[in-house]
Design a binder for these strands. Sequence first.
DNA 1: AACCAACGTTGGCACAACCAACGTTGGCAC
DNA 2: GTGCCAACGTTGGTTGTGCCAACGTTGGTT
Lengths: 152, 152
Amino acid sequence: MEHPSTPTPGRLRTTPSWLLTQTAAHAGRLVTAALSPHHARGYHYRLLATLAETGPASQADLGRHSGIDRSDIVATLNDLADRHLVRRQPDPTDRRRNIVHITPTGRRELSNLQHALDTAQDTLLAPLNPADRRELVRLLDLLLTHHTQPEG
Amino acid sequence: MEHPSTPTPGRLRTTPSWLLTQTAAHAGRLVTAALSPHHARGYHYRLLATLAETGPASQADLGRHSGIDRSDIVATLNDLADRHLVRRQPDPTDRRRNIVHITPTGRRELSNLQHALDTAQDTLLAPLNPADRRELVRLLDLLLTHHTQPEG
DNA sequence: AACCAACGTTGGCACAACCAACGTTGGCAC
DNA sequence: GTGCCAACGTTGGTTGTGCCAACGTTGGTT
């Protein structure tokens, strides 16, 4: 008895939210696979990348820029600080805040992660030509902008 | 008024995997919100929808068609069976298998869920015109097909 | 001085996605 | 037929992401 291996029929296959979550799951697998040799997860990369672009910032700002919850920032930053990729430092002008710096080691590690991730992006987008890739990024960016705007 | 609310700078913003996971997160929120009044989660809908399209099927087949793990099928099916949306029945020709049927009640509930989800899709795709929506579906489908093919 | 807002932190929760293992059953090679 | 392996349903975990509530501390406003 063979199921002709019929994977997923029509209704789900044209449901945008399902397509998004499924492709995101594949993307997540690739990202996890790319980062795990470096003992890093998505949050680690996202924080390092944000930090490298914004420069030193408070944890709350890092959260806003990276879209990670304040409470998750704490744990991730603990990991990064333990590995000396990041330094926490009290803000002299506002004692509620920590100013978080990326260290030279952190920058090197970020560049490693970036390289691994670039490869993963290529694997992810393999079936798409350059124009289609740009189009996908454009459409996703439109969605994201719209759904971040209303109250952001 | 310092931080001009600068949400997410350039690097992440053009990283396909990040765009995908973020938009998928938004989609997931909308789906959850749409289903929760019906006391259902994504798995419940996906299983009912798959069942309605394939007709009665074994749990393993349901898993293959919907992309849900066998073990998660069990728990989800328990929920659905408790609410009489689905019926489990031993396969007379293969005693390892259950044949799962969707009940009339299940069909009605599926139609409710479908309606709620259709609305959610519209909210999700609000910033996209019809052509862009088709394009997005096309591109995501390409990705999904490619990453399901290799060993499926 | 009294408030309220923002900050970092702790500890929790939900959900999707997996994985290993088990006993049962079917199919196939020998 | 016997022996072996594959597939099935099921149980009981684990992980990563995205949340939320609450607390004590600090800053800004009134």
